[in-house]
Nucleic acid binder design. Structure first.
Lengths: 207, 207
DNA sequence: TGGCTTTCATATCGAACACTACGAAAGTTG
DNA sequence: CAACTTTCGTAGTGTTCGATATGAAAGCCA
């Protein structure tokens, strides 16, 4: 079941050069997945958006699943940097606020589709794509665990009350972040979402 | 573009009786949509789950879209009853708690798929199914507006502080409710989700 | 210029998609 | 029982799905 290796990444020994910019094509694919979801985006949709033909897509990106996973990586950005930003925040509350307010900006950008690619693209799907959904869920749990650790640090240092439920608090932030995606998809304005985030942060324990 | 009328609802003048129970078949279709989503559920999936053949499905339910909308109605239940329950609650906080805790029970039922049918089934989709998504979004906005009215009543009666943002507070409840669906789909346990709800309700304004 | 390698465009592939024609079968009504 | 209405099972409609076979075209190096 070994698939042919996509040629965009490996070293190549002098041949006809690519007639398109790989990064640009990937970004357009990412936006298409973002708008329509994983299984509900067809190869025809992708080639139309990317401006390339079907064999070029398969030659450069392997297959639909690998193109999607590359799109997810482009969307999610540097996860280690996110983890470090959470760790380096002045407080867990600051980290949560930054995460949520940043999500609102991302979900309501004028140049990008509404909502979150991770939340939208894999909310549903056939059993055949369960591995793709698990991959996306892994990104969520990565962020959640780092946030929970940051909260635990604030508890240990006395910034948060000792009885604080770090898991539930981190879970609330992740829950709100996912919910914001649905609201953004429903067309809610950026200011309304920001007001929701401000309200949600009122749940933060005070000592 | 007039479609043939599904025969399950109209009066019929004596013919061969249905060999299956329409309500049972509808419930199984609803569960299938719940698990796999709208566009990502095929007619073959549905007939297999419902135990009927393709022509029977079309004869009894019209087409895929109408079958889905009937499934949504079955899932959502009596919306007017929900609205009255919100209005009749002792306080807006009670209404919100009932909504969210009920959602957790629904999203983590052992006999039903994880998460929310409305949140999962239409999170993504092609432009062709935008009308289906709008129909689902309408259910959300119906609940949200009734909750917001209940909150406004508590503000007027002095139960909530006068500066309370009713729209943002109702929006937070809806946001958490949608987010809970994603977390449940990721496999989070019922108790964890209940802890998240309890934490979220700490955001409720106190006078 | 003559290989050599890789990408290009055209034209599909078999499978799955939503959906339906048609005649046999199963009831009710006279 | 015979006429009538409706559903059932079989088989198929055209379309779109993800993914390819094939050969010409384009560039690098000798």
């Amino acid at each position: 079941m070994k698939q042919t290796e996509p040629r965009g990444r490996g070293l190549k020994k002098t041949g006809r050069p690519l007639s398109f910019d790989r990064d640009t094509a990937l970004e357009r694919a990412m936006l298409t997945f973002w708008r329509h979801g994983y299984e509900t985006t067809s190869i025809t949709d992708l080639t139309a958006a990317m401006g390339i033909t079907t064999p070029s897509l398969y030659g450069a990106f392997g297959d639909k699943k690998r193109l999607f996973l590359e799109s997810v990586a482009l969307y999610a950005g540097d996860l280690e940097a996110t983890a470090q930003a959470i760790a380096a925040a002045p407080s867990a509350l600051d980290a949560a606020r930054t995460l949520l307010m940043g999500a609102v900006i991302t979900y309501t950008g004028e140049a990008t589709p509404p909502g979150c690619l991770l939340a939208s693209a894999t909310a549903s799907g056939s059993p055949a794509s369960s591995d793709v959904r698990q991959s996306v869920a892994g990104i969520r749990s990565f962020v959640a665990s780092h946030l929970e650790q940051r909260i635990a640090r604030d508890i240990a240092s006395g910034v948060l009350p000792p009885h604080t439920d770090a898991s539930a608090l981190a879970g609330l932030v992740m829950t709100v972040m996912q919910g914001l995606s649905v609201m953004a998809r429903d067309g809610m304005a950026r200011a309304s979402l920001q007001a929701i985030v401000a309200t949600a942060l009122q749940a933060w324990p005070r000592r």
